[in-house]
């Protein structure tokens, strides 16, 4: 056998560089999509079954005891909260992927190769967005199956899905930053995953912030998650808590502003952490 000993191509000029960056990012994303094909069980269990289990648990187990605004069914009210929760759990998914790659030396291997450095992170972000889109689609299907309906128009429903994915996009960068920062520290990874629960529950997803002690209710209302949940409830035409505070009245713009603010903070932090791998 005569080996072909191919030579790597290096970009010539900025346009070429951009083309490689996109191609390399897509290669890294495709790596993750290959996981779907190779281990469908793990992907389904992680991205789909867990949120569905929570829907069924809250919808049927606790649902009967929950006070629902107006006379709506609790499920009707619950689903937008569950969609947003699924986006929160994405932080942990991103964090674990990023820190595992960094800890196992996969990130180092990428960094020692003549590929676009940005692709390491951009490819991950794209893969996570696709993962979350899949999970969201599964959740919506599950919701429809148990009687949840989007009662607004199709345009509003799509806008709501867009807001949810925007939130997920923001959380991608939180996960990337934390993963690159704490990859030498598995305890920190566990801690962040544990914190997802209070972040998720300290919002208006399950109960009204009005039933919480004043200060806690305020935190819950200002939780970025709550803005997305309130806005998507409105867009899906599902019942919400209402309330009188400024943040409740401006849920829709805040559902855009919060994620953008998070990206504005965590994207540069992620870039910095990535650069700091060289220190």
């Amino acid at each position: 056998m005569t080996p072909t000993t191919p030579a790597p191509a290096l970009p010539r000029g900025p346009l070429d560089r951009m083309r490689w960056a996109v191609a390399d990012g897509w290669t890294v994303t495709r790596r993750d999509l290959t996981h779907w094909a190779r281990r469908p069980g793990a992907v389904i269990a992680g991205s789909v079954l867990f949120p569905i289990m929570i829907v069924l648990m809250f919808g049927y187990l606790f649902g009967g005891a929950m006070r629902t605004p107006g006379d709506g069914r609790y499920l009707e009210f619950l689903m937008p909260g569950m969609f947003a929760m699924t986006m929160v759990f994405g932080i942990g998914a991103t964090l674990v992927s990023v820190s595992t790659d960094a800890a196992r030396g996969v990130t180092d291997r990428f960094r020692s190769m003549p590929m676009a450095p940005s692709a390491v992170v951009v490819g991950r972000a794209a893969a996570d967005m696709l993962n979350s889109a899949l999970a969201l689609a599964a959740m919506i299907a599950c919701g429809l199956a148990v009687g949840w309906r989007a009662r607004g128009g199709l345009g509003d429903a799509l806008l709501a899905v867009g807001l949810l994915l925007l939130l997920r996009f923001a959380f991608v960068w939180v996960g990337v930053y934390l993963g690159l920062t704490f990859h030498r520290n598995p305890e920190a990874v566990t801690a962040v995953r544990t914190l997802e629960f209070p972040i998720g529950f300290l919002a208006n997803a399950f109960v009204s912030p009005a039933t919480m002690p004043g200060w806690l209710g305020a935190i819950a209302e200002w939780n970025p998650l709550s803005a997305t949940i309130s806005a998507t409830r409105r867009l899906f035409g599902n019942p919400g808590w209402g309330g009188d505070s400024w943040i409740v009245h401006h849920a829709l713009p805040m559902a855009v502003a919060w994620p953008l603010l998070i990206v504005a903070i965590f994207f540069p932090l992620s870039v910095r952490s990535f650069r700091r791998l060289r220190r």
Partner: peptide
Amino acid sequence: IGLVGQHTAVDEAL
């Protein structure tokens, strides 16, 4: 260059 580090730096699932 090629780098072979101390850990198996490949994707375990693939």
